[in-house]
Each structure stands twice: as structure tokens, then as C-alpha cells.
Design a protein around this nucleic acid. Structure first.
Lengths: 416, 416
DNA sequence: GCAGTATGTTTGTATCTCGCACAAACTTAT
DNA sequence: ATAAGTTTGTGCGAGATACAAACATACTGC
């Protein structure tokens, strides 16, 4: 099944909310007809956040009349986007039992792509977060653009062809510098072939589906928000550690993108003026202290076995087995990761941070160490609590679900 | 004239938008009647941002029908909030000349309070930003709460009594840690008498007016946004330097407050791990490098005359007069200020920064130096430009207008 | 079987924007 | 001077939406 020239479908209603909103200089008035799409989006988000929920509960949560919720969900049930579950137990005082609503498992799915230097992963993601039709491919990071595009089209095409019905859209998570507004990959240090590639336009034209692209940490954030530990949260950040350091923020119920999607390049905030030389050419970037390269160099100095193969998971194992050198290094690693989080906390006060990548393999042990150092580094307010969580689902998993979540987020324009 | 038990008036319509919106857990649906208040607010903001504007122009900017704008502004004209200006020149092709709308100079004003350790300033601010009925008073930072409250009531009462009609509300800008959600001063290091004081409740009950409080840098930000160089901008930060360092952000057309108004405590982000000891007890805070204390210590070392009286303005004068030591110190001062701005830029990518306080006294010279260092410290994108502006209006001026702007912002709940 | 209670639906109402038609006011061409 | 063209600002009905009131439904407890 292919989807060339399909009419664009929409998740939250019966009207496309694509690129049709010209930014006319900061003022935009709201029309009564726009209310429908907005409220449909909010109801869907409430369902995501809370799981199966009855109309009456939704109405209570939103502070609106039950009739309003009925009016919103009825067309969605008719469209087979939502299904009514079995009547639950009524309350102790009696009453008609509530019938919970949730997403139809047979509803259209979302296409997801994870694009890292040299590797492509594609899959389908259901509205409830299940992954299927997963495929991998490789490409030459220094090779030919046309060859890359052909590989991409073929791999994604095979994945999409396994869908029973046209997906709602395609989400792409990519490493490197992304201009998400214009759907262009600006530059990828380790894959020059991708630089300047208008991937969104290419895929949209080829598959006839809505396509959204964003950079990798932001996909992790969205994956956390829709399907992971960030579900239902209004303020948190996702932090990626590994060979590089990156991050993305969810603030006041909204993904922060900055101008042209350029916010969140945390790895190159400076935590040590005139410190170690960084790959970016500057000195003292957070990335010089919180990445695997630092960890491995330090492991060698500390005399830990196979220092080039060390990662957070093994370091935690060694520490648990009683190695003092490992414990010491782990603590210093945690401190280095904490410094950037602390600065972010001091700046935005999000209070919740989800670790991905290498640090996440260290589980609750590293999370606890990081939290303690963060609390040392920031000025805490009374009654304030900072939580550090790990999402150890494995990279591809969360990023792909996040890429799918990008499509969902794009449909549900929750902010006017 | 006193205003006890006046009915609360509203700027953007005919319904109070005070504390009546319960946060029912992230979901809130929009009602058609809510649209009215929202759109009224947006039209008012467009008028603020663009100055006197005709209905037709407003409609074009907002992308709506002219009749819609008429429907919105007509009641405001009737209420004497807006006035119709003289008909301007028609377009070259002819046509009926447009009649620009703007705020009525005789509309109610805003009360503003600037509260710093030991000093109170109060004034009235018109909707167009003019200050009048300015008063000052002092209080003992370690004294008695009741004495402080009495002084505050008396000073503010005198200012308010000069208004011809009840103001829309009172805005308070305060140094220290503020819980703007609950209207409480959490703690002020240099004025223990204020700690824990529920000032909003006290003033609201006494004067019968809506009262809003926020911390000092955020008032500067709002002052910039409504009446200063940030007018019409959608993304920028205000940076205050002096004895302390602080900042506040305007992101996507909205003041960022963080949880309970705790965002933006930039002075204590760490730019030098294990660096100089800071007043807060930690090491390497930005505040150890970007404040007057640092500047004065360095001035002494550099052999500059009267090092304890040095400030940015004098340093710039000395540098202009040819002092190499002054020029060198100025550049290092600019670099230290730049480091925190660079980290903020790397994190949020706001691209525009307005300096206040000591640095602002250095004018365009320091602004240029800071900009150059910021550009060295961050990874620039293609076509990206960073601007550093100074608002040299003098502290009280911008902060007081910002305090007034807080009231305006609070009325115009532009985000649903 | 009946009262009590909670859920979900139907019907009519209020609010708001939009498109259309039109008067008013001004410029340009004949 | 007159007519045509253009732009502004204003009534009026249509369409979309949430809300309140009333009602049918389904369960508990006596």
C-alpha cells in the first residue's frame, strides 16, 4: 500500500492544521470555529495523560459540562479514532456505571524515523505507543545525497507498506542541527551528506503524508512526554548523555523550540571558563566533562580495566562490587553531569529531569548521585523537590516513539 | 480619594479574570465567551506594540475581518479606554482616511511600587507609560513588620490619592525571592523584615485594588516589553548587573515565571567549577565574576584611581580617555558578563538581551564588547544575529513602569 | 418495587467571528 | 464639475461552539 496523493488526514478534527497559519506579526485572534480543534486536542491529550477515562471524568478534569465532552468525543468515536470500553464499576453510592474512552487500537498509526550518522531506523507506532514494522538501514555519511534519499525512501516505504491504513503522518528524529520550522537538516558534523537537506519536503512529496522533523533530544523529550516517565508532566527536561550532551525542555505544557528550533544546545554551555578544549573549538563546555570521552580518559587514569570500554552501566556494576576507584569515578561523573542540570535548574526551575543515553544505563544509582550533586549546586527553595529519573528503554525505542509523538504534537496544536 | 472596596475593574473587558481559573490539572477547554476576553487582550497588545493603529490595520495584522475589530474596539471606545484619533492621510490610491485608535490619556492609570531593601518608591503610570505622583520612603530593613506595612500603606496611599479615578491595579517589583503565584515575599537577604510577608493580600485588602507582585528583574523585563526596547519583541531577556546578577525571559510572547515564579535566578548558575566563593555559599557562580564587587577588586589590582568608586560608566570614560588598564579591565568585565548571557543563549536561543543596572551605564561601548564575547562563546547558526541592547533609563524608571506593566500583563491573559 | 445517584443525550440559548452588502470619505481621470 | 475607483467602517444573517436544563438510562440500597 502506498500513500501518494492521499488527502491529508488530521488527528484532532476534520480540518488540516498544517502550514496554513501565516505568522502575521504576533497578533492572532481566535475564532469560534478554532475552538473545536483546540478542545478536541485537549481532550485527546487528557486521554493520553490519564489513560482510559469516562466522559464525566474528562468533563470534571476540564471543568466543563458533560455535554461538551459528549459533543467532542462522539464524532471521534464515529470516526473510529476512539473506542468506548466496557462499563466499569459504578461508585459506591450507585449510579450509572461510566464507560471509559480510549484510543482505538485499530486507528491509523504513525510513521517514525530515527536518523543518526550512518544509520536509518524506521517503524510504525500506534497511538498507544506500540512499535511495529521496525527496519534498519545504513548509509554512507560522506556519500551521495541521491543514494541516501533512495535508501531512505525504500526503507521507510517498506515500513509504511505494512500499515493497514494510511498513517496520520511521519515523524523524523535526527542528530545534528535541525531547522524544524522549515524542515531542513542544517548541518550534521558526522554526516556531511545530510547538511542542508530539505528532508521534510522530500518525504512529504513522496509519501503524501504530513512530515515533521526535530532534533534527537527533542524527540526523546516528546517520547518521554507521550509514552514515558514525562507523561502528564507540565515541566521537565530530557537530557541525553553519551558521546555528546544534549537536552530539550517541556515548559508550561509545551515543547520549547526557540527560534527555528535552535534551543537546548546545552552541551556547549560553558561551565569552566578557559577549561578543557572542546570539539566545538571553545573551552570549558559542559560536553568536555559529561561525556563518555571524559569518562574513558578518567577511567584510564584511575587504572580501571578496559578503560576504553567503560560505560555508566559497567561503572555502576564495578562500584556495586566494591571498587572504590569505580565509586569515586562514578561520583565525579555524576557531579559533572549534575553541573549542567543545576545550571538549567537555576535558569528555568523545571524541577524534573529525565536522563537518556549512557547515564541512563546507570539506573537509579547514578540518578541518585546526580540528584544529590544538583541539590548541592542550586539554591533550593522551601518545599522544593528536584527529581532525576532515567529512561532506560534503549535509545532507538524512546527516540522512535518520540518521533511519532512529534506528529501527534503537531496535530494537537494545544496553544493558540 | 481612596479606593477601599471599589468593585474590581478590568482592562480587557467586562469580567474579572483574577483568581477564578482553577488549575484542574492541565486540561482546560476554551469557551466561546472566553474568546472575547482573549481577543480584546490581543487587540490591546497590538495597540501597545504598534502605537496608534486603525481598525483596518489591526484587522490585517490579526488576519481577521474588519467587522470583528469593530466589534471589539467599539465597546472600549464607549468605555473611554480607547480614543479615536484624527483621520490620517488616505493611501495614495485614495479611499476613506483611516482613524487611528489609541489609549485614552484620561483612562485610569496603574499604581506602581518598587521595593528594594530599605527603600520604597511609588508612582502612577499611565497606559502610555508616563510616570507621575512619584514618591519615596525609607524603612528599616531589620525593623518591625507593622512599621514597614504602615509606611508602605501611607506612601502608596498618597500616590494613589493623586489619581483622578481608581487605577486598574497596583504592580509591585521587589528585590529578593518572590512567590508571585501566592503574592508572598519569600525571603530578602538584605531586608529580613520582608521575609514571608504576604504583601499582595495586605495591599489588596487595604486599597481594594488588584495587586500583582514579581521580582525585580522580571519587572525590568516587563518594563522593556511594554515601554522600552523590548516593545513588540517576542523573545528576549533582561539582564540586571550590579551588586547582584539577575535576569528574566520573554519567550514566545510570554513572560517565563517557572514554578511559583522561581525561574531566572541566573546569578547563581555556575560558570567556573570550584571557582571563587560566592555569597550564596557555592563556588564559581556567575555572580562572582559579573558584579561590581569583582570589578572593584580588579580595579584595585589594576591600579585604577579610586577603585572602590569605579563603575561601568567611569570605566568607559577612562577607557575612552585612553587608559589601557581601564580598557583591559572593561573588556574582561564584558567577557564575564558575556559568559552568562552566552550560556543563556546556548540554552534558549533568544537572540536579544537588554542590559540594566551597572552595565547599562556603560552604553553602547560595553554592549558591543559583550556582544563580541557572546558571539565567541556560542555556536552561531547561519544567518543568526545576536543583539545586546542597553536600557539606560535609570533603575527606578524602568522598574516602576515594569511594575505597572505587570498589572497590564496580568489583565491581558493572552494565553489560553 | 422504589428512591437515590451518577452517566450520557437531547434541546434550546448565548457568545462570538465571518462574509456580504452598503454608506461615507477621499483620489484620480475626463 | 462629474464620474469612477478605492479604502474605511458598519449593519445583518449564517455558522460554530459551549452551556444550562431536562430527560432517559443503569446501577445501588432498602
Amino acid at each position: 500500500m502506498t500513500f501518494e496523493n492521499q488527502p491529508l488526514r488530521s488527528l484532532n478534527g476534520f480540518r488540516m492544521t498544517g502550514r496554513d497559519v501565516p505568522d502575521t506579526g504576533s497578533v492572532t485572534l481566535v475564532s469560534p470555529s478554532a475552538i473545536g480543534a483546540i478542545n478536541r486536542g485537549r481532550v485527546l491529550q487528557a486521554l493520553y495523560d490519564n489513560g482510559p477515562t469516562s466522559r464525566a471524568d474528562l468533563a470534571r478534569m476540564a471543568g466543563v459540562n458533560r455535554t461538551t465532552v459528549t459533543g467532542i468525543v462522539q464524532p471521534m468515536i464515529k470516526e473510529k479514532l476512539l473506542v468506548e470500553g466496557k462499563a466499569g464499576r459504578p461508585a459506591a453510592q450507585g449510579g450509572k456505571p461510566a464507560r471509559p474512552l480510549y484510543f482505538n487500537p485499530d486507528a491509523p498509526m504513525l510513521g517514525a524515523v530515527l536518523l543518526l550518522p550512518g544509520s536509518i531506523q524506521t517503524c510504525l507506532v500506534s497511538l498507544t505507543g506500540e512499535i511495529s514494522a521496525h527496519r534498519r538501514a545504513v548509509f554512507d555519511p560522506n556519500g551521495d545525497v541521491d543514494a541516501f534519499v533512495a535508501t531512505m525512501k525504500e526503507t521507510l516505504g517498506k515500513t509504511l507498506s505494512e500499515a493497514k491504513q494510511p498513517p496520520f503522518g511521519i515523524g523524523v528524529a535526527a542528530g545534528g542541527m535541525i531547522d524544524s520550522d522549515n524542515g531542513v537538516i542544517v548541518a550534521v558534523n558526522l554526516a556531511p551528506v545530510l547538511s542542508g537537506l530539505p528532508l521534510v519536503g522530500i518525504l512529504r512529496d513522496h509519501f503524501g503524508l504530513q512530515v515533521v522533523i526535530d532534533h534527537h533530544p527533542r524527540a526523546l523529550l516528546v517520547g518521554d512526554r507521550w509514552f514515558g516517565p514525562g507523561r502528564g508532566q507540565q515541566n521537565f527536561a530530557a537530557i541525553y548523555t553519551g558521546e555528546v550532551l544534549g537536552g530539550a525542555f517541556y515548559m508550561d505544557g509545551k515543547v520549547y523550540r526557540g527560534l527555528a528550533g535552535s534551543g537546548g544546545e546545552l552541551g556547549h554551555t560553558i561551565v569552566q571558563i578557559d577549561g578543557l578544549r572542546c570539539n566545538c573549538g571553545k573551552r570549558g563546555c559542559w560536553e568536555t566533562l559529561g561525556t563518555l570521552s571524559w569518562l574513558r580518559a578518567q577511567a584510564a587514569e584511575a587504572g580501571i580495566d578496559d578503560p576504553l570500554d567503560i560505560d555508566c552501566a559497567r561503572l555502576v556494576r564495578l562500584a556495586r562490587e566494591g571498587s572504590e576507584a569505580a565509586m569515586d569515578l562514578l561520583d565525579r561523573y555524576a557531579r559533572n553531569i549534575a553541573i549542567g542540570i543545576a545550571n538549567l535548574q537555576q535558569t528555568l526551575s523545571l524541577n524534573a529531569y529525565i536522563l537518556h543515553g549512557d547515564a541512563a544505563t546507570g539506573g537509579t544509582m547514578i540518578a541518585d548521585l546526580v540528584r544529590r550533586h544538583v541539590e548541592d549546586f542550586v539554591m533550593m527553595r522551601p518545599n522544593q523537590e528536584i527529581s532525576i529519573l532515567v529512561n532506560g528503554k534503549g535509545e532507538g525505542h524512546t527516540a522512535l516513539r518520540g518521533a511519532a509523538g512529534l506528529v501527534v504534537s503537531d496535530h494537537l496544536k494545544l496553544v493558540i
